[in-house]
């Protein structure tokens, strides 16, 4: 893309920069990890060549256990279903990574660039568990939702993939067209704890 092309996350209109400048000290902390590269990867987990191909393209083993994830410095892979993964990479590298994957994979597989289709919200803070308890029906206890686990679930009246990155840290992958609804939902649901936005 040329440098002149303006790029905007699905929550551009929420003005997170302005909200962050307010420096609110809230029990819930929200950050949009915006404009990352999102690739949807499909393939046969029982095919050793597929696993090898992914490993060579991403330098990361494909997580095979249900609801698991894998991460290195540049890449996160989230298990979505037995033959579907979400690969998250730095913004603007998605085309190159897609190319690498297509090069190293043979046989039956699929890669779709969905970087425009979704965004990631990072939620943390001492009250983030209560916020999530209002939003999803899944058990947030560390025994059932340990760090690095990923679940696809209903979030309020939308849905999301949620990955736990710490006892009080979560990543929410949400769809672009529902982003505004979820932003409204998170504001309403965190009202009693205070919501601070960071960049």
């Amino acid at each position: 893309m040329s440098n002149s092309a303006r790029v905007e996350s699905p929550l551009e209109h929420a003005d997170f920069a302005g909200l962050a400048a307010l420096k609110i000290n809230g029990g819930v902390i929200l950050r949009e990890a915006k404009l990352l590269g999102h690739l949807n990867l499909r393939g046969n987990a029982n095919d050793p060549d597929f696993l090898k191909g992914v490993k060579s393209a991403l330098d990361l083993d494909l997580p095979l256990a249900p609801c698991s994830s894998a991460q290195n410095a540049n890449t996160t892979i989230m298990w979505l279903s037995p033959d579907e993964w979400l690969v998250i990479v730095d913004g603007v590298t998605e085309a190159a990574i897609e190319g690498k994957l297509r090069q190293s994979l043979r046989g039956h597989f699929a890669v779709s660039d969905i970087s425009g289709a979704q965004t990631m919200l990072e939620i943390s803070g001492k009250d983030c568990l209560q916020l999530l308890q209002k939003s999803i029906g899944y058990d947030l206890h560390l025994d059932s939702f340990p760090i690095n686990k990923v679940i696809g679930t209903a979030l309020a009246k939308s849905s999301a993939h949620i990955r736990r990155t710490g006892e009080y840290n979560f990543q929410l992958i949400i769809r672009r067209s529902f982003a505004d609804y979820i932003w409204l939902w998170l504001q309403q649901s965190s009202k009693e704890y205070g919501l601070s936005v960071t960049l």
């Binding site: 905007e8 425009g116 009246k157 067209s177 529902f178 409204l184």
Partner: peptide, 18 residues
């Protein structure tokens, strides 16, 4: 619950909505 007013039903928007 809080599924009222704006949150009664999700409204989906395109990138050009503004």
């Amino acid at each position: 619950g809080s599924d009222v007013k704006q949150l009664f039903d999700p409204a989906r928007f395109t990138a050009m909505h503004s």
